[in-house]
Nucleic acid binder design. Sequence first.
DNA 1: ACCTGAACACCGTTCAAGT
DNA 2: ACCTGAACACCGTTCAAGT
Lengths: 233, 233
Amino acid sequence: MPRHQDRAAGGRRRASHSMESVLTEAVVLLDEAGPSALTFRALAQRLGGGVASIYWYVASKDELLDRATDHVIGGVLADIDAIEPGDDPIDDLRAISLALFDAILVRPWLGNYFMRNTDVQGNCLRLYEKLGQPTLRLKLTARQRFHAVSAISTVVVGSAVDLGQEPPAEVLDGAVGRDEFLSRFTATWRELDRDAYPFVHEIVDEFDGHDDIDQFRAALDLTLAGIRLQAGA
Amino acid sequence: MPRHQDRAAGGRRRASHSMESVLTEAVVLLDEAGPSALTFRALAQRLGGGVASIYWYVASKDELLDRATDHVIGGVLADIDAIEPGDDPIDDLRAISLALFDAILVRPWLGNYFMRNTDVQGNCLRLYEKLGQPTLRLKLTARQRFHAVSAISTVVVGSAVDLGQEPPAEVLDGAVGRDEFLSRFTATWRELDRDAYPFVHEIVDEFDGHDDIDQFRAALDLTLAGIRLQAGA
DNA sequence: ACCTGAACACCGTTCAAGT
DNA sequence: ACCTGAACACCGTTCAAGT
């Protein structure tokens, strides 16, 4: 309970918040029931105050999400700081990427706000710096370093957002399993004409029951292989 | 004007729509004023009818966006069909990727709905097939092909969505130029401590006034290099 | 088969007023 | 400096009723 109550003369209550409590409770709402559950009204109720008071701390819902994102990235940053740098810069890039991926996979909304406004997202900027540092040990131009880190960032955020998309309600209910859900898609694909859709038929078995993490690791490794080649390492 | 009017006995008008006109007008709204401008009320007004009639064609706003996405992807598909396959499968992958990137860069909302529900997105599935076909000419396993195309798709969609994000209103107004907007960010970055942010300082000049397309091409080429290496081609 | 008006249950945001 | 209640101008979606 990061919130306190002031008691005025008449016995009337007046809520008292803080940036910290606003962001913490916002993240709780997001974790409990997804992005659609984060409304100013729900947040105000959780904080035990009125809707309008939230506007003392943030100017808009976008800024609330920017700041909430930076708040949880703070935790990711701690995980990343605990990673021991190794001999191979590429391995360090991979380790940091995985930590970020894990965080966004669980909270896909992060992907839409990560690094969107570094003026209020100090932790995101610190993470960007952390991700970039290993490239300083690679034989690349400044431009290549910039592009390499942008590419990794895109793969991490893009994969996590894509793979973390909430499946339809029936899957969340547990009425239909994830595998069953995937199979329903592929069943349609299998009925397609083999001559017109040779590629879809080639990969349909791979798609069926595929593992999200494998897909991300493969994408990341392709980019890292490209970077390694470029650096001649 | 893809809409007609029926005239009943009393002289009363009754609008008549079609899936085609609903999607066309939806895309017009999206193009004119962005995703926030696509509301059922605005769309109904454009079609000259009531809000509820749209629900005869789509079950929800999500489905409307899924179908609108597939509608414009139909046009992209035509562009891609015009591409002559070359000797190098990797070059074909690049050409198709660029065509898709161009489309999403201009309409970033496409990225959020592309391939989200292939049951109502036949054109997206066809594009996925097109993108996958060149990999059939590479020496890869089925799983590697699946992962390669997933990776490319993530890079294309992720980059385009990222780079296509609407800049703040002041830039759209023309009050502040894009370069000036970027410079404002980097000005803050330059003030950071050099020892704590060596990477940011290394790339700040590259970020300043950088070109979106270059950034995408670099990311795509890294992935393609990884694929080429894997295929031993 | 397809369209309508009106209602329902929400939203984010603002503002004059309070403490 | 910070919080409040009430209002404003919207949303997506539903439904009984019309043609």
